[in-house]
Design a protein around this nucleic acid. Structure first.
Length: 798
DNA sequence: ATCTATCGGGG
DNA sequence: GTGTACGATAGAT
């Protein structure tokens, strides 16, 4: 009876029905029909770790005494399982309702002879995925029976009988092929700058479907967004997307929509089972039943190459939407563009550009996200919201389960510090033609080579271990007799990645097969590279501070020896940080270093990039370089943040560009003088002089006097309501007293009121000197002397 | 010199 | 976990 169904697992949830949990797997079949598969015989369980000489019979009897009627204890099984490499006696307790596990954990832990409760902190859905060895985004086969009465918003509902096995035919099929993706973005009315969902309506929602060329823009009617929200919900129901993407929607769009919907009494049924509002879930993400809500900002956070990760910047950087080809509106001008009917079409185009950027980013990022799900076992809506340590831990839990190892509990610990990587003092100044050598996966390689892990670390004397590795400096020891848990996992990753890279060779670069394999090997690399940080993370189940300390010690040793060798053959070393070396780009000598590292030390180092021109300051982790393709890397010059004026941000990036492109800091000095002149001549608009700061608490609760609290008070006197979370925009005007006393709401003053000296001394000069200071240029030089007008046009800024 | 407050995304 | 933690910096005192 029944039939075999091949399905792709997208998401999992469960519900309680007749006092029993029912697992629901959300996915689609080979005909691209959306399916829900239920599994009703799975029950929650956990383990009791017993004392060596505990009286098992007696313990079992008292366990049953604690059984509660609302969730009876269904079974107690006596087992011997490995715990951190050593066999232990445990009792497996099976119960009925997942939520009762927490309570049983408390009560049963008090029984005499029970040393610890294990695996009681694993969520029920994850427990199921772990036990059945299921990875979201992969394809499986199961024997199923159709269920006629289908209350879900899917094509078919089935009940699973028996086993679920991976569908080998689908392993190399693009997991996103045929899935419906919907991007959305809301615009909010914000006349008081910081929108308040209890007051300010949503004015536009832009939506773009992956298979359609043009976005749909829903608009509010005046200041009434009730029909807009209703239409949005209807549109989701109609288009029925599998994946919903946005940019920072977990922190902004969803919470805002939820508040607005609540205010209007609208049910936000956007999932595949009613009622199904977006639900706050793990890792700060909103989960939507039956769909994957993926926040693309989580992917952007991984781009270390760019400092500002706004939708506009990220889309520009990745070539999804060039900054100069889109409508740019300052966030604080949104309401003005809505109220002015002349300007409203521009706002509409802005909103469309946003959602087009969002879907563009989805095409760039999701193939990687899908592979990360396939490798880590976390659903795609969670995997990117989770930190790298959680992603690795998800995989480690599966590896432990496969080996029959008990998982350590997550416990609260104090963070203990230890010495990190080597950071050399840079050679300040401008250097031409500099190569960056990177150790390939330095820390994972160390872990494999020296069998580092929580189950191989030797506390005290070595006992009967024959093959001991001792880390330099820190004196941590590891037993090398049998491969430990971490080493086994890492070796599996390494072998897997090698095999994938081998297979990639048989495909043309850029083909879909090649891209799929490439994203998969990247996902494996990300998990492998998280392993060191994971061991040093106090909240980790397999936390091992001694391991982390030993890994960095071996790393320091490696890089020091490489530096010494490079210098011994006459290669100039400009800078080095943890696992990278900046050296003069002398190909022959670099090859010798590469050979030395691979032959003498058995590690791999390779050229990561070559800078045509680079400048270091004497500060560590701070440099800017010009790559051969004209791109510029700016690392560590972080003054230009959101709480600086536009003007100072502009000055700083222009200076880095001028210095790197011309190699002459003097030309940047001329540029700064131009800017100062323009400011004095009132040629710079007030918009560029606004400084924005957020009120984090009630004004009365501030101990210190600050510009933005003073301005908030002024605004309050003017009749504005200011509250925590509001962004206060201010400018500094001429007059006596402290800066705070001279701060005014930007919309209350004219350009002639502006205190140019403040902007020169506190905004332009510090931003400029952050870079130019390292070339011996002083404040005085920037403020005096002649200027050459032509230079201001270098970057055409105004 | 010390203390308090803010940045990161979104609108 | 119904997300922090972190390192850097400005301004007041």
């Amino acid at each position: 009876m029944g039939k075999e169904l091949s399905f792709q697992l997208l998401d999992i949830s469960y519900e309680i029905s007749n006092n029993k949990p029912i697992i629901m797997l959300w996915g689609r079949d080979r005909y691209n029909k959306r399916v829900t598969l239920t599994y009703s015989s799975f029950r929650p369980y956990f383990y009791l770790l017993l004392d060596e000489k505990a009286d098992e019979e007696k313990i079992i009897k008292s366990i049953y005494k604690y059984s509660k009627q609302k969730s009876p204890i269904l079974g107690v099984e006596s087992l011997t399982l490995n715990y951190l490499g050593k066999p232990k006696k445990v009792l497996k307790i099976t119960t009925t309702i997942p939520e009762s596990v927490r309570e049983y954990r408390e009560t049963l832990s008090r029984i005499e002879g029970v040393k610890d409760v294990l695996e009681a902190d694993i969520r029920f859905s994850m427990r199921f995925l772990l036990d059945k060895n299921l990875y979201p985004m992969r394809w499986y086969k199961a024997n199923v029976n159709p269920i006629d009465k289908n209350p879900f918003i899917v094509d078919e509902l089935y009940e699973i009988n028996g086993d679920i096995v991976e569908d080998q035919e689908m392993v190399n099929v693009n997991p996103l092929e045929g899935l419906r993706i919907m991007a959305f973005d809301i615009e909010v009315y914000n006349p008081r700058r910081t929108p308040d969902p209890s007051r300010d309506p949503i004015i536009m929602i832009s939506i773009r479907h992956s298979n359609e060329k043009d976005p749909i823009v829903l608009e509010a009617i005046g200041h009434d967004d009730s029909s807009l929200i209703q239409e949005f919900v209807e549109l989701i129901k109609k288009e029925d997307p599998d994946i919903i993407v946005g940019y920072n929607q977990n922190k902004f769009d969803w919470p805002y929509l939820i508040e607005r919907a609540k205010k209007h009494g609208i049910r936000l049924d956007v999932g595949r089972k009613n009622p199904s509002p977006p639900n706050m879930s793990v890792f700060g993400h909103y989960s939507i039943q039956g769909r994957l809500n993926v926040d693309l900002y989580d992917f952007a956070e991984e781009l270390q190459e760019i400092k500002f990760k706004s939708l506009v910047e990220v889309s520009d950087y990745l070539g999804v939407m060039p900054k100069d080809k889109r409508v740019n509106i300052e966030w604080w001008q949104i309401s003005e563009y809505w109220d002015d009917l002349q300007k409203r079409p521009t706002l509409k185009r802005y909103s469309m550009d946003d959602v087009n950027s969002t879907i563009g980013l989805a095409f760039k990022f999701l193939p990687f996200g899908a592979q990360l799900s396939i490798i880590s076992g976390l659903p795609m809506d969670q995997v990117m919201a989770a930190s790298v340590a959680f992603r690795l831990e998800a995989r480690l839990m599966r590896e432990a389960k496969k080996k029959g190892e008990l998982m350590p509990n997550r416990t609260e610990r104090q963070t203990e510090t230890y010495v990190g990587g080597v950071v050399l003092k840079p050679h300040p100044g401008i250097h031409e033609n500099v190569a960056v050598l990177d150790f390939a996966s330095m820390y994972p390689s160390i872990m494999v080579k020296y069998n580092v892990g929580p189950d191989t670390i030797i506390e005290g004397e070595g006992g009967d271990c024959k093959n001991i590795y001792t880390a330099p400096e820190v004196n941590q020891k590891f037993c090398g007799d049998t491969p430990g848990f971490m080493k086994q996992v890492l070796q599996r990753f390494l072998r897997w990645r090698k095999e994938i890279k081998e297979r990639m060779k048989s495909y043309e670069e850029g083909t879909s097969e090649y891209n799929l394999l490439n994203e998969r090997q990247r996902a494996i690399k990300v998990l492998a590279n998280a392993s060191y940080g994971y061991l040093g993370w106090a909240a980790a189940r397999w936390y091992c501070r001694g391991c982390a300390e030993a890994i960095t010690a071996w790393g320091r040793d490696l890089i020091r020896r490489s530096i010494a060798y490079a210098k011994s053959i006459g290669l100039k070393v400009y800078y080095g940080d943890t696992d990278s070396l900046f050296v003069s780009n002398d190909e022959q000598k670099i090859q010798k270093v590469i050979d030395f590292v691979s032959k003498e030390m058995e590690f791999e180092i390779k050229i990561d990039k070559v800078y045509k021109r680079i400048f270091f300051t004497e500060a560590k982790k701070r440099y800017a370089g010009l790559l051969s393709d004209g791109r510029i890397d700016i690392v560590g010059f972080e003054a230009a943040r959101g709480d600086w004026s536009e003007l100072s941000k502009e000055v700083q990036t222009s200076i880095a560009k001028i210095v790197l492109r011309t190699g002459d800091p003097k030309r940047a000095v001329e540029y700064v003088k131009e800017v100062i002149d323009n400011l004095k001549n009132r040629k710079i608009g007030i918009d560029k002089l606004i400084v924005w700061k957020t009120l984090t608490k009630d004004i009365s609760k501030y101990e210190a006097e600050t510009p933005h609290t003073n301005v908030a008070k002024i605004m309050e006197r003017m009749g504005y309501k200011v509250s925590p979370g509001n962004k206060i925009g201010y400018v500094i005007i001429k007059g006596p007293g402290s800066i705070s006393k001279k701060a005014r709401p930007y919309f209350t003053v004219g350009i002639s009121d502006i205190d140019d000296n403040y902007y020169i001394d506190k905004q332009i000069i510090p931003a400029a000197l952050r870079i130019l200071g390292y070339f011996g240029i002083t404040e005085k030089e920037l403020k005096t002397g002649t200027r050459q007008p032509s230079l201001f046009d270098f970057f055409g800024s105004s």
